[in-house]
């Protein structure tokens, strides 16, 4: 199928700003779904609130555009309600880690087969450029006119510590790898987190003099290293698959529990 066959073309062009990385993620996600060969009727996309969350509306899946931070909670119910479905959850960094932080760690702990795509552009875009829990220290935002003093979360470390069984990171520059990682994440039978460093030229870029979308992609290109190949220099972006372990999946465990209970074993 053509990429456009997965889109609700009547709503294109999308609302994202020129050069916004979210469009690249959308582009890669559709190709990953196509490569796997998923039927559109078998895919549920659940998003929260924010620029990233608008992705659901553009895709011709079963789509649920929910509340800020709560996408994983809605997705948990949707998946448990019909475990046959593939459930993909695109989130922003604020959506996933600030207001949705509790749901994020508990979804990871549970290891339900959901694919969480964290589109990390280090900023709240939709509300106009406030700092997020992923904004690096000493960077500027409309609510950090003197620079942030907050320490940022490392999405990969949070997801790993909380028990996600697939954790990967890439950037919007590394599109071939990105497609592969999203594909791996969707195919992985457990909770998958793919952090995607993603450019917001409009707010993060302007506030931090990072230049245009092109300049921000160049930054990803020049500062990314494969896992274990870096020097540990500050600002270095490690990309690749950090965790990939097959662990008992939540819906499967529940099914086993039901069988045991019904068989009188528990």
């Amino acid at each position: 199928m053509a990429v456009t066959d997965y889109l609700r073309e009547q709503f294109m062009p999308h609302i994202w700003c020129p050069g916004c990385g979210h469009g690249i993620v959308l582009n890669s996600l559709v190709r990953a779904v196509e490569q796997i060969g998923l039927e559109k009727n078998d895919v549920v996309m659940v998003s929260g609130i924010g620029c990233s969350a608008r992705m659901a509306g553009y895709l011709d899946f079963h789509t649920m555009h929910t509340l800020h931070g709560r996408a994983l909670a809605f997705a948990t119910g949707a998946k448990m309600g019909n475990p046959r479905l593939k459930v993909i959850v695109p989130m922003g960094d604020g959506d996933a880690l600030a207001i949705g932080g509790n749901h994020f760690i508990h979804a990871a702990r549970r290891n339900m087969d959901l694919t969480a795509i964290v589109m990390n552009n280090n900023i709240y875009g939709m509300t106009g450029g406030q700092f997020s829990p992923a904004t690096p220290k000493n960077r500027y935002a409309t609510t950090a006119p003197y620079g942030t003093i907050d320490e940022p979360f490392d999405v990969v470390k949070v997801a790993t510590a909380a028990g996600a069984s697939f954790v990967a990171r890439s950037t919007t520059y590394h599109v071939n790898e990105l497609i592969k990682l999203i594909r791996e994440g969707i195919e992985h039978p457990g909770f998958s987190v793919i952090e995607i460093l993603d450019q917001c030229p409009t707010y993060y870029g302007r506030k931090n003099l990072s230049g245009s979308a092109v300049d921000m992609l160049k930054h990803f290109k020049e500062n990314s290293v494969k896992i274990g190949k870096g020097t540990g220099a500050p600002g270095e972006i490690e990309i690749g698959v950090f965790v990939k372990e097959v662990r008992p999946e939540y819906c499967d465990k529940y099914e086993s529990l039901v069988k045991e209970v019904q068989g009188g074993k528990k």
């Binding site: 549920v44 659940v46 079963h62 649920m64 929910t66 509340l67 709560r70 994983l72 909670a73 809605f74 997705a75 948990t76 119910g77 949707a78 998946k79 448990m80 309600g81 019909n82 479905l85 509790n102 749901h103 508990h106 529940y254 529990l257 039901v258 209970v261 019904q262």
Partner: peptide
């Protein structure tokens, strides 16, 4: 579980109500 129905204890009340809305949409 004894009747093959899904029971979940969530991380808070917010996720509980969100989860039931999600599950309602998948036909429950």
């Amino acid at each position: 579980p004894a009747e093959g129905k899904a029971f979940m204890q969530m991380e808070d009340e917010i996720s509980s109500i969100c989860a039931i809305i999600g599950a309602s949409l998948t036909g429950n």
